[in-house]
Design a protein around this nucleic acid. Structure first.
Lengths: 102, 102
DNA sequence: TCCGTTATATCGGTTGCCGATACAAATGTA
DNA sequence: TACATTTGTATCGGCAACCGATATAACGGA
C-alpha cells in the first residue's frame, strides 16, 4: 500500500482503452500500435502478463474464446479506473504546461 | 533498449518539473505535494534514488550546497525530455477522451 | 526541554516491463 | 506444393523503479 500512487503504466492504460470494445490479445497489440502512431508496441510478455493481473484486479473480464482468440472486455470497475486516469493525466499536462511556460 | 518506451514515471516527471526552478530535495517533495493537490507525496527512497539516476542521465545537475541543502536544476537535456513527455501525455489524454466518449 | 519539521541517505521487498524463447495455426506467395 | 510471414497465446529471467522502513541529525517553536 502506498500513499496514493494510482498511476497506470502506459501499457496498462492502452490495454484498458482498447478493451472498451471487446477484443482479443493480439487485437490489443494492433490497436495500441495504431493509437500511438506506431510509437508503442506492446511486447507479448507485457501484454499477456497484464491480462492476467488485470483480471485479478477485476478491471477486465474474459468473454470467451473464438477459435484461438480469447476475448476480454473492460468491467465497470475498469472503466472507473480509466476515467480517473484521464483526470490524473490532465493534471500532469496542466502542471507541465504551466511550469514550462514559466 | 526497448521499442520506444520513453515514458517517465510520475515521480520523475514531478521531480523534473520542480527543477525548472533550482531547488533542493526536500523542496521538491513540497512542491510536488502542492502541485498535485496533496495527492502525490514522494517517499524519500524514491526522491533521493531518482536524484542520483537523473544526474547520471544528465537530466539534472547539482548547483552546490547551502548548509544542509543540496540544490539541483534541470539541464537543457532534461528540459527536452520534459517537453517530449508533455507531448506524450497529451497523446494519452486525447486518445483516452476519444475512446471513452465512444 | 521536547517535539515536529526540515533534510539527506540507504536497504530490502515487490511490482511490472522488456526481450527472448517457445509453440502452433492461418495466410500469403513463389 | 513448399516456404515465409503473420496471427495468436504463453512463460521465463533480468532489470529498473517505486515504496515503506529505518537511520541520522540540525533547526525552530512551545
Amino acid at each position: 500500500m502506498n500513499n496514493a500512487n494510482n498511476a497506470l503504466t502506459e501499457a496498462v492504460y492502452y490495454i484498458l482503452l482498447s478493451l472498451i470494445e471487446p477484443k482479443h490479445g493480439y487485437g490489443i497489440m494492433q490497436q495500441t500500435a495504431s493509437l500511438s502512431g506506431g510509437r508503442l508496441r506492446l511486447s507479448a510478455g507485457t501484454l499477456y502478463g497484464a491480462l492476467v493481473s488485470l483480471q485479478e484486479k477485476g478491471w477486465i473480464e474474459p468473454l470467451g474464446e473464438e477459435g484461438r482468440k480469447k476475448e476480454y472486455r473492460l468491467t465497470d470497475n475498469g472503466r472507473s479506473v480509466l476515467i480517473a486516469e484521464v483526470e490524473r493525466l490532465e493534471e500532469l499536462v496542466k502542471n507541465g504546461k504551466e511550469l514550462l511556460n514559466h
